[in-house]
Simulated assay, not measured.
Amino acid sequence: MTEKYQSYTAADFIQDDAFIQWAKSPDAAGDTFWKQIAVLYPHQKEVIAQARQIALNLAELSRPAYDEQEAGLIWAQISGQMEDAPVSAPVIRLGWLRYAAAAMVVLLTTWGIRHWYREPETLYAQRTRQLENVHEEINETGKERVVQLPDGSHVTLAQGSRISFPETMGGSKREVYLSGEAFFDVKRNPSQPFFVYAGELTTRVLGTSFTVRSFEKENVASVQVRTGSVSVAAHAPRKTQSVVLAPNQQVSFFRKEERLSMGLVKAPQPVIPQVELARFTFNNAPVSTIFDALSKAYGIEIVYDKEAVAACRLTSSVQEESLFEILGVICEAIEADYQVSGAKIRISDPHCN
């Protein structure tokens, strides 16, 4: 079972026999196992590296400075020269003294890490510690896990993530607290807005579907919208920023820079039924008509020069292609280029014969 390692501190690692054995005598199997742990729990990668260095330092401290047999011979010579002395000399075993000192260092280091080394308390811990009648769900499995909230909303919790929420969702608003990543499918209720608190980000919706990602040890937190619209606020020490997101838009919050950046999701999804999109067939249609239809189908603004494409006509149909694949085919046909600029798509340099 590897789940225990996701919450290990450095002190826990240096008391784990398997970890100590690998740190002191690494082999291929150990390298593979601990690399897998770092992949499963990315937030533990730095902790594992720190714990390994501590283990190596302690191993070096506990190494004998010289051969004990040689020390015994030296003491025998000294004893022989002192046979006539009235007081017998004590037997001093310097090697064992060094071992004892090293053992003491191990104990003090472990105790010090446990009692003096404390990671800063996360916003998730600060907030949930003050709640009453709260229920927490933790995904310690190797796959996504679906959690149903008291209001009927559904949350798909990613691996290594946790969420807390009241056992009942009465009052003027619904509130949940997230550490990690989750996809929310929120039951619409205009009279009771839904709030997600995830690190510095606060996401407010009425009823929609969206993804929030906010792992404490990652520099970037984000919100991606699939349907509906959401309001996102970033509460940083120096300033508070907010944006409103539409479908297929996302916002990223860069913690070190305390900066919000809006853009499009990597794989935009249609905001109309896929069946309806598949019926899009264009027979010698103006390219402007095609761009406008795609803009409506995906809820994304496509910016182009209407005069420059006025003479462009195209015969095309939409099947299983993604938005960017469709745009690639169109732009190749009219010898144009497209690029994502913020939350928009811009078409440039068309050449229509």
Rank of each mutant, 00 (worst) to 15 (best):
T122M: 02
L131A: 04
H115V: 05
P90I: 04
G80A: 14
P86V: 06
I48T: 03
W111Q: 06
Q15N: 15
T109A: 09
A103R: 04
V47W: 05
Q69G: 07
I74C: 03
V47M: 02
T110Y: 00
W22G: 05
L108T: 09
E136G: 09
D17C: 07
Q21M: 10
A10P: 01
A55M: 03
A100N: 04
R127I: 08
Q126T: 15
L131V: 01
I14K: 00
V134C: 10
E46G: 01
G30C: 05
V91S: 06
E83D: 12
W116Q: 06
P86C: 11
G95K: 02
S62I: 14
K24E: 13
T32K: 08
L94N: 06
W96H: 09
W75L: 08
T109K: 00
T109Q: 01
G95M: 05
E121S: 10
V47Y: 07
G30P: 06
N133V: 02
P42Y: 02
A59H: 10
V106C: 13
V91P: 03
S62N: 13
N133H: 13
A100S: 15
A55P: 02
A11W: 09
R63L: 08
A11Q: 03
S79I: 06
D31V: 09
T32D: 07
R98F: 00
P26N: 06
F19V: 06
V134N: 07
G30L: 04
E119R: 05
A11C: 03
V106I: 12
P26G: 12
K45Q: 12
T9S: 07
L123N: 12
H115R: 13
K24I: 14
E136S: 14
V91R: 03
G72K: 15
L61R: 14
I74M: 11
D67R: 07
V87N: 10
Q53W: 00
P120S: 15
R114I: 14
H43R: 14
E132D: 12
S25R: 09
A23K: 01
Y41W: 13
E46T: 10
L40Q: 14
R127Y: 10
E121Y: 01
L56N: 04
I92M: 04
F33C: 05
V105W: 02
T32G: 02
R129P: 02
D31W: 00
S79Q: 15
T122P: 03
